[in-house]
C-alpha cells in the first residue's frame, strides 16, 4: 500500500542538542496514527517538520508522494491546502470571530459570495457540534472545549484529506475529552480522513488510534496499538503499563467496540 505521508531519515538539531536522529515512519490513508513521547522528546518539532513549517537538518518528508523538502513555495502552498491542522491551544485568531476564523482560508482561496460562505461556515460549525450562534463569538469568549472544536472546524475548512491534531484533548475534562475523541473518530470514519495526532491522553490513544508511534531515544518506534503495548522498551512499557495507564486500559477494554 502506498503511504500518504512518509518520513525518511529525519534529523532535527538545535545547536548541539539532537532532537531527532533518523526518524522514519509511514502514515497510510484512512488510519489514525497517534504520536506519543515524553515531554521534550520533540513531538511538536516532528509535527512542524511534517507540516513543512520546519526544514529538517537531514532527511525527507513526503506527502502524497511529493517531497516537501524539495518543493517550490507554490507547490508547498498547494500541499498545505490538502491538510488541516488543529493546534494545541487552538491558535484561533483572537481578533476574528469564530465564523471569520473558519472562513479565512476559504476567503483566501476561493472567490465566494457571502451567502455561500455563510452556508459553508454553518456546515463546519455544525459538523464539529458547535451551535451556529457560536460563530459570532470571539475566541476569548469560548470555553476550552469549544476552542478545540472551533479549531477543528477551522482545520476542516478546506475539506482536507489529512488532519493533524496537536494534543486535541489536553486541558479538557474527561467527559469533554471523550466527546471530542468520538467526534474525531466519527469525522474520520465518515469523511475517510487520515488523522495524525499528538497526544498524551491514554484514553484517546486507546479509543481512537489504529497505530501508535513512540518517540524514544531520538527515533520512532511504530506499531499497532496491541503491538506497542507488548513492546519491551522500558520507557514504552512504563508508559503503557505504569500506574496511570492500568485503570484506563481495563476500563477501555471493557468498553471498546471492535473495529470493523
Amino acid at each position: 500500500m502506498q503511504p500518504i505521508i512518509s518520513v525518511r531519515g529525519v534529523v532535527n538539531r538545535f545547536g548541539t542538542q539532537v532532537v531527532h536522529d533518523g526518524v522514519e515512519f509511514d502514515v497510510y490513508a484512512g488510519e489514525v496514527l497517534g504520536i506519543v513521547g515524553g515531554s521534550g522528546a520533540g513531538k511538536s518539532v516532528l509535527l512542524r517538520t511534517m507540516l513543512g513549517l520546519r526544514k529538517p537538518d537531514a532527511g525527507t518528508v513526503a506527502i502524497a508522494g511529493k517531497e516537501l523538502t524539495r518543493m517550490s513555495d507554490a507547490e508547498l502552498a498547494a500541499v498545505k491546502r490538502s491538510y488541516g491542522v488543529s493546534f494545541q491551544h487552538g491558535a484561533l485568531f483572537s481578533a476574528l470571530t469564530v465564523a471569520e476564523n473558519v472562513q479565512l482560508a476559504m476567503r483566501e482561496n476561493f472567490n465566494l459570495d457571502e451567502a455561500t460562505l455563510q452556508a459553508l461556515t454553518e456546515l463546519r460549525l455544525r459538523m464539529v457540534g458547535l451551535p451556529v450562534d457560536a460563530g459570532q463569538k470571539l475566541p476569548s469568549q469560548l470555553s476550552g472545549g469549544m476552542i478545540k472544536r472551533a479549531g477543528l472546524a477551522r482545520a476542516l475548512a478546506l475539506d482536507p484529506g489529512i488532519l493533524f491534531l496537536d494534543e486535541p484533548t489536553s486541558g479538557l475534562d474527561p467527559i469533554s475529552a471523550a466527546a471530542f475523541d468520538d467526534l474525531v473518530l466519527y469525522l474520520q470514519k465518515s469523511l475517510k480522513l487520515t488523522v495524525v495526532m499528538i497526544t498524551h491522553d491514554l484514553d484517546t490513544i486507546m479509543t481512537t488510534c489504529d497505530r501508535v508511534a513512540v518517540l524514544v531515544d531520538h527515533k520512532i518506534i511504530i506499531d499497532t496499538l496491541d503491538g506497542i503495548m507488548q513492546n519491551p522498551h522500558p520507557w514504552i512499557h512504563e508508559y503503557f503499563h505504569g500506574p496511570r495507564s492500568r485503570a484506563v486500559r481495563t476500563s477501555s477494554q471493557r468498553n471498546r467496540t471492535p473495529k470493523e
Binding site: M106, F110, N111, L112, D113, T116, L120, L158, D159
Partner: peptide
C-alpha cells in the same frame, strides 16, 4: 464536485 470548484458549483 469539490471545494476547489465551489464557486462554479454555487
Amino acid at each position: 464536485w469539490s471545494i476547489d470548484r465551489i464557486a462554479e458549483i454555487e
